[in-house]
Write a protein that binds this DNA or RNA. Structure first.
Lengths: 232, 232
DNA sequence: CGCGCGCTTCGGCCACGGCCGTAGCATCGG
DNA sequence: CCGATGCTACGGCCGTGGCCGAAGCGCGCG
């Protein structure tokens, strides 16, 4: 068989708890230092260093040196998508009882809004997608998605400029939300919408997690633009 | 963090070489017995039994008892898609030198034509997809796919009945071919096309692998239907 | 220029988990 | 009803790999 071993090695690399939490921390698309990653994984820097070296030589991570810091990030969007698919399956499999047991305040924020590599996820992202579907601004099916002309205009009106389709990357695709179990918007369109929300000050990141908070101004703007209510 | 541990556990489950080769063997969608899986993984039945039990309780596999045999299969298409995404990334990462080194006769057959869970993959599947795209029978982009009316008619002409969109499963989606690095047709449409090729006797499975062989009749029929040449 | 900080390398400890041999439990055939 | 077959449960062996402490670079800053 061709490359069964490479397949197992990749999965084993992800399967270690410490490495898994570092990869999870990088899912928001930012680049973090070894020390930051060590802290989130609950291990010492020297142990983290070894893990990061293995992940980098395996090609899952990329590293850029900047002064005496070394920033680690996911190597490609394909890696992020792979991690997302594993998360999706494992979330599906987790026993419901246990899932309810660990819902804390931080989890509440995560469920409401978070980043998923470079786009938005959580209740708010699914709600946005729903409204755009209802208005015929996007065609979002589990097996594919497409932005309509109306959708392009709507985003322009929000001050969100979507890069041209010609660029190499995937333009618009659905991404299964693991907390809502319904699709939200990913791809270049999802990334542009996410960037727009941050640059307008509608959303801001919460400390060192993937969760994001809705600012007061953001709440007004988003409720008006998407014609919806955000209560919690 | 919500369920980081479940995430790592799932990946670790896939990361063991023996379990990885068993999961790979099940990627063609068939259900196999513990003994067959043990043989392909190169371990004893009692060891395989333990692995299968863990995979089943984790929800990655499903088991059906039939007399004194127990058939194991992938639990859901989502699991297959997750495995496929890991394969795709790990194939990308494998060093090119090594990849060329292990190309044998069996690999040649695998590269030409194989099953990918429930649809076709390999050079032949990519060629089929290319022809259908060129004729406007399918719209196949990396981020989504759709069958046109012309495509539906073409498949009907081949005696391939595609189940209605209303059914719960994904209708038509692209799947990145790991040997060709280009998309082929997956989803309900891909599965129907694959079933049709088998039921017409155009393709048949090769021993215990995912590879499939083109029968003489199949070669004639496929070359005519898709207006292409199959030389090897 | 030399201290300090971030990161890596090395060596040794320890435990988790895969593997098999043996033995026990179901199901089918004679 | 007894033997054969497919599978599973238990116990012990052993190797792989994660972890940390201590020590060694490399870069920036004072």
């Amino acid at each position: 068989m061709l490359s069964t071993s490479a397949f197992a090695e990749t999965a084993a690399l992800i399967g270690d708890p410490a490495r898994a939490s570092m990869l999870t921390a990088l899912m928001d698309g930012r680049a973090l230092t070894a020390a930051e990653l060590a802290r989130t994984a609950g291990i010492t820097p020297q142990t983290a260093s070894g893990h990061l070296a293995r992940l980098t030589t395996a090609g899952l991570l990329a590293m850029e040196r900047q002064g005496r810091h070394r920033y680690h990030r996911l190597a490609t969007p394909a890696v992020a998508q792979m991690l997302e698919s594993i998360m999706s399956v494992s979330a599906e499999l987790a026993t419901p009882s246990r899932k309810l047991a660990v819902v804390g305040p931080r989890d509440r924020a995560m469920r409401l809004a978070r980043t998923c590599y470079d786009h938005l996820a959580g209740r708010i992202a699914v709600a946005m997608a729903d409204r755009m579907v209802a208005r015929g601004q996007i065609d979002l099916r589990p097996d594919g998605a497409a932005l309509t002309e109306a959708g392009l205009g709507f985003l322009r009106g929000l001050g969100v400029e979507v890069e041209q389709r010609s660029s190499g990357r995937v333009f618009c695709r659905p991404c299964l939300d693991w907390s809502e179990r319904r699709p939200h918007i990913a791809g270049a369109v999802g990334a542009a919408l996410c960037r727009g929300c941050f640059s307008h000050g509608w959303l801001r990141r919460i400390d060192g997690t993937r969760a994001v908070a809705v600012t007061p101004a953001g709440r007004l703007a988003l409720e008006q633009a998407f014609d919806m209510r955000l209560d919690p």
